[in-house]
Amino acid sequence: SLSESLSLMSHRVYAIDYESTWARNNVFDFGGLATREFNNVNRACPGASVSLRRPGLIKIPGLSRLSAGFTHYLEIQKTIKDRNIDAIILYSVPTNGLQAIHLARKFNIPVVFRSIDILHRLVPYPILRPIVRLLEKKVYSGADLLLPHTPKVARYLIAMGAKEAKVNLLPLPVELDLFRPFLDSAELRHKWGLGEQDQIILFQGTLYHFSGLDLFLHQFPTLLEQVSNAKLLLVGDGPQRPVLERIVAQLGLQKQVIITG
């Protein structure tokens, strides 16, 4: 990840995130507004050390995001003051986007927005998507630099109000110390039923409904007519998975399509 890579370059990195998978421990657990801190966090890069701050929230649907907007503002402000922050790298819009833009202006700190999703389309409640889309426009126009991971996302940012001069393409990198194509993958191939001669198409990511994978699956039989040893490997999980599994069963592609979860 970008934050862990910066940590490995000897930068002090503080991540402030929203606990999207919150759950009540009991019927009386309504959360709280205190921030929890986790030190020396890393997920992708061994040796990285990120300080994770998770502001509190009210554990009631609807109020969780609203309360988090308040606690995130306070935590961002506190971190800027206490840790002498040089720059803010922003991924989010609805929870802390405008808060970060406002505080960056207040403390004269540059904001870099790393764009890897069409954020308003991730909102589970359709009635709220236009509001988040409006917030996106505000954040994109206020960021000092925007780093999309694909040309299509770059065009989307510009269409949403970002100045073209501030949009710089930054494709997702490959960490060669972790992903080594010359390692013996026989055990992994056997686990997922992949032959040595199979031509593997890989998708890695969250299975959202806008992924286009359902459309691809419907076209996959045509591809198999041309490349009979093709296999589709979907690494990830998400709300679209039941739909994809149903399509795979309907088309009889159980041997050609593997969803690992």
Rank of each mutant, 00 (worst) to 15 (best):
Leu2Ser: 00
Leu2Asp: 00
Leu8Cys: 15
Met9Phe: 02
His11Asn: 15
Arg12Pro: 12
Val13Ile: 14
Asn26Val: 00
Phe28Leu: 12
Phe30Gln: 04
Ala34Pro: 00
Ala34Gln: 04
Thr35His: 07
Gly47Tyr: 08
Leu52Trp: 14
Arg53Lys: 14
Arg53Trp: 14
Arg54Met: 08
Pro55Tyr: 03
Leu57Asp: 03
Leu57Lys: 09
Leu57Cys: 03
Leu57His: 02
Lys59Cys: 04
Ala68Lys: 07
Gly69Asp: 12
Thr71Val: 10
Thr71Trp: 01
His72Lys: 05
Leu74Trp: 11
Glu75Cys: 14
Gln77Ser: 13
Gln77Pro: 06
Asp82Met: 10
Arg83Val: 06
Asn84Thr: 08
Ile85Arg: 05
Ile85Lys: 02
Ile85Cys: 09
Ala87Thr: 11
Ile88Gln: 09
Ile89Trp: 00
Tyr91Ala: 09
Ser92Ala: 06
Val93His: 01
Thr95Leu: 13
Leu98His: 06
Gln99Ile: 02
Leu103Lys: 11
Asn108Val: 06
Pro110Val: 07
Pro110Gln: 05
Pro110Leu: 08
Val111Tyr: 09
Phe113Trp: 13
Ser115Leu: 15
Ser115Phe: 06
Pro124Phe: 12
Tyr125Trp: 13
Arg129Ile: 08
Pro130Ala: 04
Pro130Val: 07
Ile131Gly: 01
Val132Gln: 07
Leu134Cys: 09
Glu136Pro: 12
Lys138Arg: 13
Gly142Arg: 10
Ala143Cys: 13
Asp144Ser: 13
Leu145Thr: 11
Leu145Glu: 12
Leu145Arg: 14
His149Pro: 01
Lys152Phe: 02
Lys152Ser: 10
Ala154Leu: 03
Arg155Glu: 14
Tyr156Arg: 01
Tyr156Asn: 04
Leu157Ser: 05
Leu157Lys: 09
Ile158Asp: 09
Ala159Ser: 15
Gly161Tyr: 01
Lys163Thr: 01
Lys163Leu: 11
Lys163Trp: 00
Glu164Asp: 10
Val167Arg: 12
Asn168Asp: 10
Asn168Leu: 11
Leu169Trp: 00
Leu169Gln: 02
Leu170Cys: 08
Leu170Glu: 09
Val174Tyr: 03
Leu176Val: 10
Asp177Thr: 14
Phe179Val: 09
Pro181Gln: 09
Phe182Arg: 05
Leu183Ala: 10
Leu188Pro: 02
Lys191Ser: 07
Lys191Trp: 02
Lys191Leu: 12
Gly193Ile: 10
Gly193Glu: 03
Gly193Gln: 10
Glu196Phe: 11
Gln197His: 14
Ile201Met: 08
Gln204Ile: 08
His209Ala: 05
Phe210Asn: 05
Leu213His: 05
Leu213Lys: 06
Asp214Tyr: 00
Leu217Val: 05
Phe220Val: 03
Leu223Arg: 05
Leu224Met: 11
Leu224Glu: 01
Val227Ile: 14
Ala230Asp: 03
Lys231Gln: 04
Gly236Tyr: 04
Gly236Pro: 10
Asp237Lys: 08
Gly238Trp: 00
Gly238Arg: 00
Pro239Lys: 00
Gln240Ser: 15
Gln240Val: 02
Pro242Ala: 10
Arg246Met: 04
Ala249Met: 07
Ala249Gly: 04
Gln250Trp: 02
Leu251Tyr: 13
Gly252Gln: 07
Gly252Thr: 07
Leu253Ala: 05
Lys255Gln: 15
Ile259Glu: 11
